Simulated scan of single mutants.
Amino acid sequence: MMLLEVNNLNRRFGGLQAVSDVNFSVHPGMIKAVIGPNGAGKTTLFNLISGALPPSSGAIHFKGLPIHGLPPFRIAERGMARTYQNIKLCPGMTALENVMIGRHCRSRAGFISGMLNLPWTRREEIAIREKSLELLALLDIADLAEVEATSLAFGQQRAVEFARALAMEPELLLLDEPAAGLNIYETAEVARLISTINQRGITVLLVEHDMSLVMDISHEIVVLSFGQKIAEGTPAEIQHNSEVIKIYLGEDDA
Rank of each mutant, 00 (worst) to 15 (best):
I112T: 09
M211G: 11
N10F: 14
E124A: 11
I31R: 11
P55M: 13
F162T: 11
A163H: 09
L139Q: 05
P91W: 08
R129F: 05
E134W: 06
K88V: 02
N198A: 04
R11I: 08
S20R: 14
S57F: 11
A81H: 07
G64Q: 10
M30W: 08
G51P: 15
A149V: 08
G14R: 06
S195Y: 00
N23Q: 02
L136C: 07
E220V: 00
L139F: 05
N198P: 04
I67E: 01
V34F: 01
S242F: 04
M168C: 12
Y84Q: 01
F62K: 14
N241K: 07
T83P: 06
G79L: 06
G79E: 04
R129T: 15
V207C: 04
F111P: 05
M168R: 06
A81R: 08
E220M: 03
F226H: 11
N183L: 07
H104P: 00
H104K: 07
P119M: 06
E186S: 05
G155A: 08
G201S: 04
A33G: 14
Y185E: 10
L182C: 07
A180M: 03
N47A: 08
Q239T: 02
E134K: 13
I247N: 11
E161C: 12
Q156I: 00
I87N: 02
P119V: 07
E220W: 03
N198Y: 04
F162R: 13
D21L: 01
I194G: 02
T44H: 13
L166C: 09
A254V: 15
Q157V: 03
N241L: 08
G233I: 13
G29Q: 04
G227M: 04
V214I: 15
E77C: 00
Y248S: 12
L144G: 00
E208V: 09
L249N: 12
G250A: 13
G79N: 04
N38C: 10
V99L: 05
S107H: 01
L152P: 14
E134S: 15
K229H: 03
R103Q: 09
G14D: 04
L139D: 04
A76Q: 05
I128S: 12
M1N: 12
L133S: 02
L175Q: 04
G69N: 09
T150H: 05
N23I: 02
L138S: 02
K42D: 13
S56K: 12
L135Y: 07
I31A: 07
K32V: 15
I184A: 15
E220Y: 09
I217D: 01
M215W: 05
K229C: 05
E124Y: 12
R164T: 13
T121N: 02
S151L: 15
H61M: 15
A142H: 06
A81Q: 09
T203D: 05
R108T: 14
T44F: 14
N98H: 03
Q239I: 01
D176H: 00
I31L: 10
I202G: 07
R106V: 08
V204Q: 06
I230E: 04
R78H: 01
F62W: 13
E208K: 11
V223F: 06
M1D: 09
T94D: 03
T187D: 00
M1R: 09
H219K: 07
S56A: 12
I75G: 06
L172M: 12
